[in-house]
Design a protein around this nucleic acid. Structure first.
Lengths: 342, 342
DNA sequence: CTGTTAGCGCTTTCAG
DNA sequence: CTGAAAGCGCTAACAG
């Protein structure tokens, strides 16, 4: 490893001078400046991030921590992060925890938050993340939450109106004539999923629609279970079988639709299905009809989070930033108009 | 920020003792050990990564650098990286350069390679990456290349037999009766693309098949161009129109097929199309038939690269590691058997 | 078993 | 404009 000490010796100047040249922090005799630059280049000098971070207490880097980076759900968000990154001078690094693994997520956050990056964007609403958030908060470390918040803590972040999104979806289905609307819910360990489920209940209640107990089912581990949950709905007797299935997630919707199609049914003619997120890319190379979905602006959220965090780090932002994003329904091909119903 | 100094004061011991407790590096009186641990916890101590890295000259982290992390191409590779990461104790971070941006890639590599991670996995075969590779090499920094190599440099890495893969694809198509086989090639700035194209030419030559000049066309910027290149093939007169189009990439194949389908043609009945990579997820929510493809073991490559790099860092590997992965053809739905031809 | 001390590589006062 | 020196937070000898 080449250090500034070696450069100083080779150029016959002091450490301080080399540092000044390399960081452009103070005027230096042009001749010396050139000599030092030359020596540094010829020696292949690369500044030591750790040493610099230690003394400057800043790294000019931002970290992004998510679960399951490979999930196609992240496609749009990632595009946003990447575009955002190229708009700032910050170096951007990503960390991915598998599954719900909170230990690893914590490990990543700790690794990053002390001398590796200046700020963190944390994505996700697992309840277990609360520990991390509190830790970051009490350290006074700058961070930005997406889809997450902790009671009683003033934090910067973006929230999506998940409850309202599903609520509107229920109304939308009702307007198209549906009354028997079932729901596939996500893990109750995620606030996002609970909010969406609440939106479903609220919508059904406000529209005076009946919610039989077996109209709500939960994904346990994996979105693939969407297919078996769909089977349950389809196996119900004609008079009680739902005419529409609302899914907390496009991925689940894709598996649910996939199952129906496999059974020789037509979507939406035989059953309507609706998702959430309006993901541009779906898992397992889904090839069914375009999924009508509650859309959230994932690209913008990714992009804006980087921009805002960088402004936060530069002190360009006063006070806390909390932004609420609204959703809107994107009509595609999986919801049918119901002529009339009993 | 809580430092070990503060802990030392609060616990009434020396810095060294605190360090010993926290790193478990040496025997410490159990009573003191407990007291220190307690104080550290109550103060919310988190070790400073930068300071530790500086003195230990190791961070127990690995960096992965790619272009366009959001590209669905990376899905399988990412899964491999993530699984690999959870098998080791290394912290794994990802960096993504947009497009071909070599400057940013270099910036990331420099950032990482000095006090942030102990080793880097570099993915990609852009010719411009050679500079980075040489830099890493001359620094003596441990790194691992996927799909990349530099003439005259002994490096660790994985290579895929791209040329052989396309060569076999040509033979496969020929066996099914195809003689008029066209090729859509990728950017000639990537060695991978050049190798695949070479495989095409070699295959065509060995099988004594004619390659009219307009049978080979190049993607310029974006894989979406696959559709206009397909149009060119389809617009050719009956007697010279290719019966099969071989694409350097599944993404391109998906756009090419998409165009044909839009024109009301049937794939493979009207034209056969074949891709490369056997990606499980395709861009823009492709919904055509399953693409017959030359498969490379992306998941394994991702997984193994992490494992091997970690072994390399732990000195468990002697000499350089270079592994060659073979490809195999995965038959799906986009290639037809040609009854007979003129 | 514990404390003191010397750095890791770099930036940044403070003198000159 | 330049150099000497202090020190960022931590670990690793080296003494005790």
């Amino acid at each position: 490893m080449v250090t500034i000490k070696e450069i100083a010796q080779a150029a016959g100047v002091s450490l301080a001078t080399v540092s000044r040249v390399l960081t452009n922090s103070r005027p230096v005799n042009p001749e010396i400046r050139e000599r030092v630059t030359e020596v540094a280049n010829s020696l292949g000098y690369v500044p030591n991030t750790a040493a610099r971070a230690l003394v400057k207490r800043r790294t000019d880097a931002i970290g992004i921590v998510v679960n399951n980076l490979h999930d196609p759900f992240f496609h749009d968000l990632l595009r946003g992060f990447e575009e955002g990154a190229s708009e700032t001078d910050y170096t951007v690094v990503y960390c991915s925890a598998m599954g719900h693994e909170m230990e690893r997520k914590q490990k990543y956050v700790r690794y990053l938050s002390n001398g590796v990056v200046d700020g963190i964007v944390l994505y996700g609403s697992y309840d277990t993340d609360e520990v991390l958030v509190r830790e970051l908060h009490s350290m006074g470390f700058p961070f930005f939450l997406i889809e997450s918040c902790v009671d009683g803590l003033e934090t910067n972040g973006f929230l999506i109106d998940n409850e309202g999104g599903v609520y509107n979806a229920v109304r939308y289905l009702r307007k198209l004539g549906h009354r028997r609307i079932a729901y596939i819910a996500g893990s109750s360990e995620k606030r996002v999923c609970r909010d969406r489920l609440a939106g479903y209940y609220k919508g059904m209640k406000d529209l005076c629609l009946n919610v039989p107990e077996d109209y709500v089912s939960f994904i346990d581990q994996n979105n693939r279970e969407g297919s078996i949950l769909m089977k349950r709905f389809l196996d119900m007797p004609d008079e009680s079988r739902p005419t529409a299935v609302l899914c907390y997630d496009d991925a689940v919707a894709s598996y649910a639709i996939g199952y129906a199609l496999e059974q020789g049914l037509k979507v939406p003619q035989d059953i309507s299905v609706m998702g959430f997120d309006n993901q541009t890319i779906l898992p397992d190379n889904y090839r069914g009809p375009g999924i009508t979905s509650v859309s959230q602006p994932l690209y913008e959220i990714g992009f804006d989070s980087i921009i805002l965090l960088s402004q936060l780090l530069n002190g360009e932002l006063k006070g806390n930033v909390t932004r609420h994003y609204q959703t809107h329904i994107v009509e595609k091909e999986t919801v049918a108009y119901l002529e009339k119903e009993d």
